[in-house]
């Protein structure tokens, strides 16, 4: 059966994911070593150890994301995070920075190493480089590849691949996107925050809702329209007399219908995005995807009704997996 890798921003969400049937949960520490460094989220050292013990009691794994890029001269913060994750019993660490991958291979050879989507490893050569030199066992593929490209990559590598199937969608080359830095001075890559909430303001202006990031208005929503996403890549801008989503339409990824094709492409694990979402969301999405991977494993059709309900009323896309151009 394909492995279902599920998000947990809090210990409660971790327990919800385990109870709903997650095979593995990914989470991170409440600091800049984690690309989801948002207020009120994430794990202390003690919470991580408790969460891992809970997951292991119920047969699930915990993968710890230490997937930002260490700041020069402050690598010790990231090194300590890796050591603490191993001490807590983590089944693997998810890493993005080449230097940190090398450090873990040398100082923690027994700790399973996964390559984060933040490393943007999108071809067999670079994946094989990480595998051969640093013993990376799994790579999380960037969300820019088609199913055919994933199939081609899997033919040329000897490590597991993990792909995103549901949730928020980055259209940029992850780990290399600086849009948030331009507006706020902070970035997902160095500080763990894309569009940090400290720089986000929502303001009711009459009947419209304006979303601002670092003082820049990035979208206004009319009454009754969905609230705008506070990220620049999903902003709505006017240029040359045309107003529209310049970078990306604000749609969520839903590749559930492609699960059989991804299985055929040789993908080992399916990842659900959403460490910032509630335990209620995690429970519902994980339960539905567990039913889906069990169906695919048993050769049964996907439980379409159940999965469709999750994105009903909200724009969803299969992203780059089935690529079309406008």
């Amino acid at each position: 059966m394909m492995e279902l890798v599920c998000p947990a921003g809090t210990p409660a969400a971790l327990r919800a994911a385990v109870e709903a049937g997650a095979h593995a949960i990914y989470c991170g520490f409440a600091d800049e070593t984690n690309a989801r460094n948002f207020p009120g989220l994430n794990f202390s050292r003690e919470e991580l150890a408790d969460g891992i013990a809970f997951a292991h009691r119920h047969g699930a794994k915990v993968l710890v994301a230490i997937n930002t890029f260490p700041a020069a001269g402050r690598q010790a913060v990231w090194h300590r995070a890796v050591a603490d994750a191993e001490a807590a019993g983590a089944d693997a660490v998810i890493l993005a920075d080449l230097g940190l991958v090398a450090h873990v291979a040398e100082a923690h050879p027994g700790l399973r190493r996964h390559l984060s989507v933040q490393a943007a490893a999108a071809n067999p050569d670079v994946i094989n480089f990480y595998a051969e030199n640093f013993g990376v066992r799994r790579v999380v593929l960037p969300r820019v590849l088609t199913v055919a490209e994933i199939t081609a990559i899997n033919r040329e590598i000897d490590v597991e691949t993990e792909v995103f199937v549901f949730g928020g969608l980055c259209v940029m080359a992850e780990g290399r996107c600086s849009l948030s830095s331009y507006a706020t001075g902070l970035s997902p890559n160095m500080n763990g925050v894309c569009s940090p909430p400290s720089h986000v303001v929502y303001a009711e202006e009459g009947e419209t809702l304006a979303a601002r990031l670092g003082g820049f208005t990035i979208q206004k929503a009319a009454k009754g329209a969905p609230a705008p996403y506070p990220t620049l890549c999903k902003g709505c801008f006017s240029s040359g007399g045309v107003t529209g989503h310049v970078f990306e339409d604000p749609a969520s990824l839903d590749a559930s219908e492609l699960i059989p094709a991804l299985a055929k492409a040789g993908v080992t694990a399916l990842k659900i995005e959403g460490r910032q979402r509630s335990r209620a969301y995690v429970r519902e999405v994980v339960r539905s995807f567990r039913a889906a991977v069990e169906a695919v494993d048993a050769g049964r059709p996907l439980p379409v009704g159940q999965l469709a309900r999750l994105s009903e009323g909200q724009a969803a896309t299969t992203g780059a997996y089935a690529k079309t151009w406008r």
Binding site: G9, A12, P39, G40, Y202
Partner: peptide, 14 residues
């Protein structure tokens, strides 16, 4: 927004 988000996440975890 940060404070509101922190409260929401704290309550969800509790």
């Amino acid at each position: 927004t940060s404070a509101a988000l922190a409260l929401r996440n704290a309550i969800d975890d509790a």
